[in-house]
């Protein structure tokens, strides 16, 4: 019950669940029923076939985070919950984006993309599809950079996260 856990910020929860049908629906339905807001969500299998990992970014303003954690923990299929502290976890998102770009501006874009660490996935007559992996702020920045060119289509994944190694060793 320290001051920080009461703060109104986004929290990244890494929720390990049993890999069974309907578990994501239970988690989503809990958030809906308790009026907790989800900012982003990513689900994938883990190193253990029986478990999946759900990374949920929770709006800390919709409910105290400990209440979210406690309610989640009551779901029988939830095996473990980590509330990742900002700066103490590696967080990544993937963005796929198609930008309108005339052939004479392609080099500009590619240069920016190289600097950001992204890749060209596909090139059309007057558009390009790019991919970029990075932490959410990095992706935000690059997305803003592309805006003036004209974004035709964009798809960002939910955030995935793991605690820094020094955090996982207790």
């Amino acid at each position: 019950m320290n001051a920080e856990s009461q703060g109104h910020r986004n929290h990244t929860l890494v929720v390990t669940v049993e890999n069974k049908s309907g578990v994501l629906a239970r988690v989503a339905s809990l958030f809906a029923r308790r009026a907790f807001n989800i900012r982003s969500l990513a689900v994938a299998p883990t190193e253990d076939d029986h478990l999946s990992r759900i990374t949920i970014v929770v709006d800390g303003e919709s409910a105290p985070i400990e209440q979210v954690v406690n309610q989640l923990d009551k779901l029988i299929n939830v095996v473990d919950i980590q509330d990742l502290q900002p700066g103490r976890a590696i967080e990544r998102e993937l963005m796929l984006v198609t930008v309108a770009v005339e052939p004479e501006h392609r080099d500009d874009i590619v240069e920016q993309l190289d600097r950001a660490g992204g890749k060209v996935m596909s090139v059309g007559a007057d558009s390009m599809m790019l991919s970029l992996v990075g932490d959410p702020e990095h992706i935000d920045t690059f997305e803003n950079l592309l805006r003036p060119f004209g974004i035709l289509e964009i798809q960002r994944t939910g955030r995935v996260a793991l605690a820094n190694l020094d955090e996982t060793i207790e």
Partner: peptide, 15 residues
């Protein structure tokens, strides 16, 4: 017995 009740409505001094 249910930790989710502690602080759900009224913050306890001793949970």
């Amino acid at each position: 017995i249910d930790p989710a009740e502690l602080g759900k409505v009224r913050r306890p001094d001793v949970p």
